[in-house]
Design a protein around this nucleic acid. Structure first.
Lengths: 204, 204
DNA sequence: TTCACCCTTATACATTCGTATAATCACCTT
DNA sequence: AAGGTGATTATACGAATGTATAAGGGTGAA
């Protein structure tokens, strides 16, 4: 089985390569950028599987993925990344990637995943994909103050301002202020829109 | 590799068994219910992989999964189903299943997935998992009329009644009626709540 | 301390929303 | 033809929401 690994970090690339080669029957070639990878494919013909680093010279997000897929003659192309989010992974798969490999995975799983993809299947680590974009560190969520988050939570339950005020032991007018400010922070037109944006961003 | 397939539909069970056996090096045994499967495991020792039908006598949703996992001595147990939803699949994986196999998958993929799971990995078909709980057939969604869905869509964008009315070329009062009725159908307290419920149910 | 920021409340007004009742029209089914 | 349902519009009013301006208190950092 012929594998091409493209990553601009020598260490990462060689570690992955070492893992795969050690399993025998897997022949690995490497590249340090998308351009180099495409050249290799042109020169050597399609690989059984190509692995591309997401944050790599020439990739331009997922644009490079498409070029590699077009270049590899129908054979699978997977994305490797240590920083990409589940959302990016979803996009990659939607864009035709054969799989998404976080750099956190074990060597054994890596080998299994590569074989799996080479067999024509699509691989995605369940535990990674299922991970919610993590409330706390979402940029929008971080901008909201504690109170605003409490109010937002009330909004998502369809509560009226007066009701939220009672629950938080505040005056209705205070809630109005919070709704106003949190809507502004989320670029929402009103409370309903604010809740939708929050829902889609993953918090709430 | 020893595989145990448990399904109460003879045809399905035997089809899967036939696919796996045809690949050689895979030894398949079958069972027609959870109880029978557990007996087999007790008698034969742990299998390399056990596949359980989700809608099978003795399963009681995912309860049977736990029993099989406890019984199979650390080796993987997967769920097979032709009717289960992505949400159920998620639950199954969360409950410790080694994978989820829709009955719609191809024989080739089935074999790959089984091997993959037997290697200790977790398998889930991306296209199935990513599928939204299917707009059209969601019970709540089905109750809404076409117009109500259009209005709901407007609500989710934070539009005012007047605005939605203009977009749909209707009077504002008409929108109010639709908002009222769709909120009633969704058991929502107001427009904001309605949007949240719709979002959580997967449509919109 | 001073400054910045958050939280709080007040007053006030315009707008929007929610609710109710009622009537007309179209379409489909029985 | 009769009846049911959905869609539409009208009128009307109370309630909720959005917006603006102002101001006092608390907390933490510079």
């Amino acid at each position: 089985m012929d594998v091409l690994i493209a990553d601009d970090h020598d260490l990462v690339r060689d570690t992955i390569a070492a893992f795969l080669t050690s399993r025998g029957s897997i022949h690995v070639q490497v590249a340090g950028s998308l351009g180099e990878a495409l050249e290799r494919i042109e020169a050597e013909g399609a690989f059984d599987i190509v692995l591309l680093d997401y944050d790599m010279p020439g990739m331009h997000k997922l644009e490079g993925l498409g070029r590699a897929i077009a270049c590899n003659g129908g054979k699978p192309v997977g994305i490797v990344s240590g920083t990409a989010t589940p959302a990016i992974a979803q996009d990659a798969l939607a864009a035709g990637a054969a799989g998404f490999l976080p750099k956190t995975m074990s060597g054994r799983s890596l080998v299994n995943a590569v074989k799996f993809m080479a067999a024509g299947e699509i691989y995605a680590p369940v535990e990674f994909m299922a991970a919610t974009p993590c409330k706390a560190e979402h940029p929008l969520h971080a901008q909201l103050t504690k109170r605003e988050r409490e109010v937002l939570s009330g909004l998502s339950m369809g509560k009226a301002n007066k009701e939220i005020a009672r629950d938080l032991d505040l005056e209705e007018v205070t809630i109005k202020v919070h709704v106003k400010t949190l809507s502004r922070k989320l670029s929402a037109r009103n409370r309903t829109h604010a809740v939708v944006i929050a829902k889609e961003a993953g918090f709430i």
